[in-house]
Amino acid sequence: MKKIKRFIVTRAKGFKEWFKQRTVTERIGFCILFLIMLMVLISFFYLPYDPTKMDGTAKLKGPSPSHLFGTDNFGRDVFSRVMSGLQDTVIIALGIVAIGAFFGSVIGSVTGYIGGLFDEAVMRINDAMTAFPSMLLALVVISVWGAGKYKVIIALGIAFIPSFVRIVRGEMLKLKDADYVDSARLMGVPTFRIIYRHIFPNIMPTLLSAIAVGFNNAVLAESGLSYLNIGVTPPEASLGSMLSDAQGYLLNAPWYALAPGFVMIILILGFSFVSEGRTK
């Protein structure tokens, strides 16, 4: 028991120290992200109302204590829908960035480390892919394959790989001739171990801020696709698809569109504050 207490105390102190070292922008960013992640976690277990339950007696009601963000044209509680939409948006964006960052890091570090003709060929393909807007790439996949949550994750995930390849490769080129890498090589450390044990930890800071930026781009791209009704399919709703439903009721029920829109802005601001703080 005492051990656990001491563990918590030292961790809390460490956290306090860490928090003090951050810039103000970064602190605000982390607070926003903490609140949003808390919302997402809560939405797994508890929502004030069932987000798909319709109520004919409470259509397009304005914000009130019982319906924090009002209700929509089917009498569904907008607050509950925003919470579950936020959950979907965050999960999809995390999936996209995870695919992009993982394959991007693997391809980028291998091609950067090997270099030569192989590197040249990979980068040529990579450049051709970056020349192609990620939204279009996703549209190509979806137009042939059909819409849906997992297809969006895969389509945009693939579209996000090239930018990570470029970043990781650039860092790899900088680090692969460093003295400590040379000495590791002389000691007979296997190539694979050099890449992931010796070089990769030093790429991590750059990669993390690229992930924060990538997360934002993923949220924007996904909400764009869902807004066009070619992203997530009903009854599932991300923030983007809510906005496209709500646009028709802008005149009578502006809260329906403004609520998901502002939640999305806050989510993106959180990540951009954090990534800006890191780069300073």
Partner: peptide, 22 residues
């Protein structure tokens, strides 16, 4: 500028319609 960058372009559009149009 930072706030504007955080707004999705289509939500900017919706806001413009709401504020200046409606």
């Amino acid at each position: 500028m930072q706030i504007i960058m955080a707004i999705t372009s289509f939500f900017t559009g919706i806001l413009l319609v709401f504020i200046f149009g409606i």
